[in-house]
Structure formats: structure tokens, C-alpha cells
């Protein structure tokens, strides 16, 4: 750290205790993130099924959900798998595999964002703009909020990637990888729920 924090006192007696607390803290944080999406999804469902009489959710000519979402879902699923490979490699002390797996996850995360951008572009060019009302805008908001969380996950992932290249994780101390993986899997699960909700709500017309 650039600034020396002279009065830092570690509240924990051992790195292991700190690790356990970190994992617990991440669970609480995942609960925070989950509440954000529970609110989003519930709000979306209410607006979707509580349309004023005579108002169509998807009027004639509205484009359906972009097909790019199928691709991005697959990318995110695979990135969860590579992330788990990284955890496994760290646990077994396989430094090279850890670096590769973290690098792959990072690459797939960027790819996911790129495909999401394609999906937005697909919908936008097919005139799902402000005139087409809430159908398009709820889509942009929901996927946008999720993308923001993915972007928020990138700096910690880059940090873990760099530290694993420096060989800083050992089979007894690889908590950073675990925390990263927990957050990543949570975003994956949230995306699946979100996508399923969007898909069901767009299919029911």
C-alpha cells in the first residue's frame, strides 16, 4: 500500500481464521447482491403482468429476446467451470494450471461482456428503443445491472490473476481465489435466473 497504516492491528490470530471470516463475509456480500436482483426481478415481473388494460407488453413487430443471450449464457457457464479449475489448481498447488485457469476465466468474462454488448446492439438496431416502451427498457436495465456486477468483479479477478502469476497462492493459503470464485459462481447463478425470467416473461404473450 502506498500509505503506511501504522496503526493496523490484525483482529485475527491466524491466516486461517482470517480466511474463514473472509469466506463468511463473502456469503453475506452475496446475500446483498442477491437482494439487489431479487428486487429487480420482482419489480420486472410486477410491471410485466400489471400492464394497464389495452396495453401490450410486446406490441406487433417487437423483436424477441436477442439470440446472442444463448451464447453469452454458455460463455458465462464455461467461465464458472474454468474458475472452479483455478480453485482446484490452487488447492493442489499447481501454479501453472492456476495461472491458465484464471487467465481463461478473465478472458471469458470479457467475452461475456462483449456478447452482452452484441445483444444490446441487436435489440437496439431492431428498434427496441424508447418508443417500444418498457419491454426494451426493462431488458436494458436488468442486463445492464448484471453487467455492472460483472465489471465490478473484474478488478479483483485481475488482482488474483496477477498474484497467481507471482506464485503467491499456496495450498494452505489461497483464499483470494476462493473468494473470487464464490462471487463469480453467484453472478453465474443470478444470470441463469435472470435469463430464465426474461425468457418466460417474453414467451408468455
Amino acid at each position: 500500500m502506498a500509505i503506511k497504516t501504522a496503526n493496523f492491528i490484525d483482529p485475527f490470530d491466524s491466516a486461517q481464521e482470517r480466511g474463514v471470516a473472509g469466506v463468511f463475509g463473502m456469503w453475506v456480500f452475496i446475500a446483498v447482491v442477491a437482494m439487489i436482483f431479487v428486487a429487480c426481478i420482482l419489480g420486472y415481473v410486477v410491471v410485466r403482468f400489471d400492464q394497464p388494460p389495452g396495453r401490450e407488453w410486446m406490441p406487433e413487430g417487437t423483436p424477441g429476446l436477442p439470440s446472442a443471450l444463448l451464447l453469452s449464457s454458455a460463455v458465462l457457464l464455461i467461465s464458472s467451470w474454468t474458475m472452479q479449475l483455478a480453485v482446484r489448481a490452487a488447492r493442489l498447488g499447481q501454479q501453472m494450471q492456476l495461472v491458465y485457469a484464471m487467465g481463461a476465466t478473465l478472458g471469458l468474462a470479457l467475452l461475456f461482456l462483449a456478447v452482452q454488448a452484441l445483444a444490446w446492439n441487436e435489440l437496439w438496431t431492431r428498434h427496441a428503443t424508447i418508443e417500444s416502451g418498457l419491454y426494451a427498457w426493462t431488458f436494458y436495465v436488468l442486463t445492464g445491472v448484471h453487467a455492472l456486477h460483472v465489471i465490478g468483479g473484474l478488478p479483483p479477478m485481475v488482482y488474483v490473476f496477477r498474484r497467481s502469476r507471482e506464485g503467491q497462492y499456496t495450498p494452505t493459503d489461497y483464499n483470494g481465489v476462493v473468494l473470487c470464485a464464490m462471487y463469480w459462481h453467484a453472478l453465474d447463478v443470478i444470470w441463469m435466473v435472470l435469463y430464465a425470467t426474461l425468457w418466460i416473461c417474453s414467451a408468455l404473450t
Binding site: M35, I36, V47, P52, L134, V141
Partner: peptide, 30 residues
């Protein structure tokens, strides 16, 4: 931890609504 995230997303929606007028809180837009 469990309630405040909901405020966060609500305020975010309100900011979006006020800037680009997406209509989520506006009955004339559904």
C-alpha cells in the same frame, strides 16, 4: 444487509427514470 440493497436498486431506477425517462414508474408508459 438485506434491506438496503433494495433501496440501492430503487434509487438507481429512479435516477435512470429521471434522466432517460424509461417509464417504469410512469403509468402513461405502462
Amino acid at each position: 444487509v438485506l434491506a438496503t440493497p433494495v433501496l440501492g436498486i430503487t434509487l438507481l431506477l429512479l435516477i435512470v427514470e429521471r434522466t432517460v425517462n424509461i417509464g417504469i414508474f410512469n403509468p402513461s408508459m405502462g
